[in-house]
Design a binder for these strands. Structure first.
Lengths: 249, 249
DNA sequence: CGAACTTTTGACAAGCATCAACACGTGTGG
DNA sequence: CCACACGTGTTGATGCTTGTCAAAAGTTCG
């Protein structure tokens, strides 16, 4: 709205533009989206399942996670969001939330009216296309997570998750490649991998003993990247890291 | 291309238009997409992981499944496609396939050049928006599958899958609600639920003994819908069944 | 009619869950 | 400043769900 807020969407725009260039006019329109800023504490909800969406949040700082609760109360984390991510495009377009989004750390979001997001996607096809590409990449990550929890053993699941964080945090400019702050408890790691906290604990100990990683509080250092990649059966292809158009135009 | 093919995309168009109306011009443009038809046998690949996409297939008849192979050779099915589905929007836009798509039954696909799909999404924003909505629903289904394989036990997983098929097949006009042909082996059911074929077999026997379903060859009859829904912790919300816009326009 | 695939059954093993207790650090209020 | 509660990480003992292996019975299809 006011000047100081003009640039808050810049990282998100750069992320969108990375896969497909946006014209200066499109970029300006995106940056001019009406936003209000909101600080959030650890554990605050951005979206609750079954909410009717009236706004779309962009994560400016801090981390968030999406999760679903199954009948017996168990929780499954279905993805992690890093700064720059549009946290609920889904909800803006589909109207009703099918999962929860909660802050993993304290942070700040830019709140944009759903209608403004829908309109810009429609009135500026390049932005609509960028959102589609972003959503397709999200889908690819979801598929990899299905394979991760469905067909890998505990050791591989955890190693895979650690590899994914390393790559995504680096891509978001949030950390170095081999050493990053992982703001998740072992219980949350379990919820992301379909394991219990106890088993995550033992699995991490095994990874440490094998010299693949070391940890200090919540910071993870990857001691042997190749080994961790092999253990986690990790291949960056599913993150579609760069412009991956069949035919650039 | 020629007249007899003009209507093959009609079911797909109706599916796209269901969530957001398309103008007659948009509808005509969609139906006029250049297609070539291709018959496929059971097990034929539509897309292979790491393929560079040159075309986008729409499933006209038959069923397909998407899957990924993990290091030790295990396979994880990440979704099932029914007639009318655009089978590889992902690949058209992202360029390189991150998973395989294979025919579950014999069937027919309409092959559209990737470029034509990209262009129509860009030049006709309403169609681009419809594709975005479709992709967002796919994402919601992926998330539910992560929760299914990550946090439910074998009995719930299988029940959930059977419920999803019942609803989706009916929505696609492929079967009645309570009785449908399920063209999957128990091994494939295991690959979709993160279980082994042997355990799927025992789980299905248990569901039968509890009077929830009965089976005859590959046909499934749901004897107790409420019971199966409860067992599978199934809630249709994640399928976003109808127009689910926050504010219809 | 036979070959290949799929379903079913049984015995056994293993990975992971469960439960419980303890250690450790952190923040908070008396 | 201490005492305490609380959340998180760690460890051990035990058991259940699911996997593995193998073989037989049933089914499909050329």
């Amino acid at each position: 709205m006011s000047d100081p807020q003009m640039a808050v969407l810049a990282p998100t725009m750069r992320k969108l533009a990375k896969r497909f260039p946006l014209s200066p006019e499109d970029q300006a329109a995106f940056l001019a989206l009406p936003v209000s800023l909101k600080k959030l504490a650890v554990g605050n909800y951005i979206v609750r399942e079954a909410d009717i969406a009236r706004s779309c949040c962009v994560l400016l700082s801090g981390f968030a996670y999406r999760h679903k609760i199954v009948r017996d109360g168990a929780r499954q984390i279905v993805s992690i969001n890093v700064p720059g991510d549009m946290v609920d495009l889904h909800n803006s377009f589909l109207g009703v939330a099918d999962h929860n989004v909660q802050m993993l750390t304290a942070g700040e979001v830019a709140v944009i009216p759903s209608r403004a997001v829908q309109d810009i996607a429609y009135l500026r096809p390049a932005i609509g296309r960028a959102m589609l590409l972003d959503t397709l990449v999200d889908g690819s990550i979801f598929r990899e997570w299905i394979a991760n929890v469905g067909r890998r053993d505990a050791r591989s699941r955890v190693a895979h998750l650690l590899c994914e964080f390393a790559v995504r945090l680096q891509a978001a400019g949030e950390s170095e490649a081999r050493n990053y702050h992982l703001p998740m408890t072992q219980e949350q790691l379990g919820d992301a991998t379909g394991l219990t906290a106890v088993h995550v604990n033992r699995t991490i100990q095994a990874l440490r003993q094998d010299g693949l990683i070391s940890t200090d509080k919540r910071s993870v250092t990857i001691e042997n990247w190749e080994g961790l990649v092999t253990t986690g059966d990790f291949n960056t292809a599913y993150l579609h890291p760069e412009r991956a158009e069949g035919e650039p135009r």
